[in-house]
Design a binder for these strands. Structure first.
Lengths: 218, 218
DNA sequence: CTCCTATGGATCGTATACAATCTAGGAAGA
DNA sequence: TCTTCCTAGATTGTATACGATCCATAGGAG
């Protein structure tokens, strides 16, 4: 199975995973030689993986200086949120227009598990289910260009936001439920509005939590 | 000057240029060996260039089958237009919010030359100026995430639309003037509306011209 | 005549090797 | 002590080499 994938893809997935789960921290240098030894492949697939990840915005590539995990400044976060909120809105609107029963069923399934996890799931589980909900919602719009663009933006925001707190998780899934209901009802306007607001809400919640943490650290 | 760029970047720019100006046609295979001989570099930079271009959507990469110039199907065009129209709208809105005098001056300059070229410029000149106007408009919003996303989408649409007819060029620049006026006035709503509509209009104009050509070919 | 199969060339994926450049750290001089 | 310059090691950029896979074509069986 995974033997059939190219080493470049394996390396790319491994590195991306380690960046997203925090094993590799923002700013950390990604030396090709070290990674190639760690992953048991030569430098060529590692280089190609890093090149791809830099296009996704997860890795910063400086000529003759090498690669490092992208640092996400507050300004970049604002920009990401602004763009992503708009696209999530469009996506939800299109999903509501189609409201494909098959994908709706999948979304219902994710929603159910997400609600359960919001009560007593691990943070990792919550993060995974959150990604799954948005991934499936993205498929529901049947626009591959939009899907590709959003996937990249989502990864970068999740890089910035790390893990959410439990209280926010409950709100998260309540908002997810609202979006899904609008999609099922075919209410394009409402779906778009809720999805856009959902992104902004998550950003605000994170900013607030972050500010408190910073204050506590003082 | 260009000696200082990496061979990967040189190869990437060359290939991109040939795709966008039509030297390389959609569907055409891009064999690494042939390109490396043509460009006078080894296969490694060529591979890395192709990888990058595939991320931009200009090149299609199939495992073990190699690269080819991306074919842009009508469905993909619709998807591109839908997303790009929305983002151009957001971009124009942000540009209007800032209405930075420095960038407005640059836009005025491009607009002036564009209007002149719409009367008696070559199609290549028109295409270049069109790209320049949108490029500068994109900078006016001061959102790098948005800029990166839009650049990629613009290249792919220009790949699909090729060169516009002269009558359309005149409308094009009239619409550009309208957008710029709204930006200068700081009228966010109007700027967004006009920019969104501009993308749709261009798509409709192209579809109409294309339909006529097809009919003539029968 | 059609379909299947074997074989060779074309092409990609990966490893290894070398050249170019950068960075860190110490020695020498002010 | 501070600054500057230089050297050695580390790291990236590129070239070359080889094995793996794909594809077209020719030849034989039905």
């Amino acid at each position: 199975m995974s033997d059939k994938d190219s080493l470049t893809k394996i390396a790319s997935d491994r590195i991306r995973g380690q960046i997203l789960d925090g094993t590799l921290k923002p700013g950390e240098r990604l030396v090709e030689d070290r990674l190639s030894v760690e992953l048991g492949v030569s430098r060529v697939p590692v280089r190609e993986a890093l090149l791809g990840l830099s296009r996704e915005g997860l890795v910063r590539l400086e000529p003759r200086r090498g690669a490092s995990v992208a640092e996400v400044t507050p300004k970049i976060v604002d920009e990401l949120v602004e763009v992503r909120a708009l696209l999530e809105g469009l996506n939800a609107r299109l999903a509501a227009r189609r409201h494909d029963p098959e994908i709706v069923a999948l979304l219902r399934d994710t929603l159910k598990r997400g609600n359960a996890a919001a009560k007593d799931g691990s943070p990792e589980m919550l993060s995974r289910l959150n990604a799954e909900f948005h991934e499936r919602l993205t498929e529901a719009s049947r626009n591959s260009v939009l899907a590709d663009t959003m996937r990249s933006l989502r990864e970068r925001t999740s890089l910035a936001f790390a893990l959410n707190s439990r209280p926010r998780a409950r709100d998260d899934w309540q908002e997810h439920a609202g979006i899904l209901a609008a999609v099922i009802a075919g209410d394009e306007e409402l779906a778009a509005l809720l999805a856009t607001r959902h992104v902004h809400n998550a950003a605000v919640a994170f900013a607030k939590a972050h500010a408190e943490t910073d204050q506590a650290a003082d």
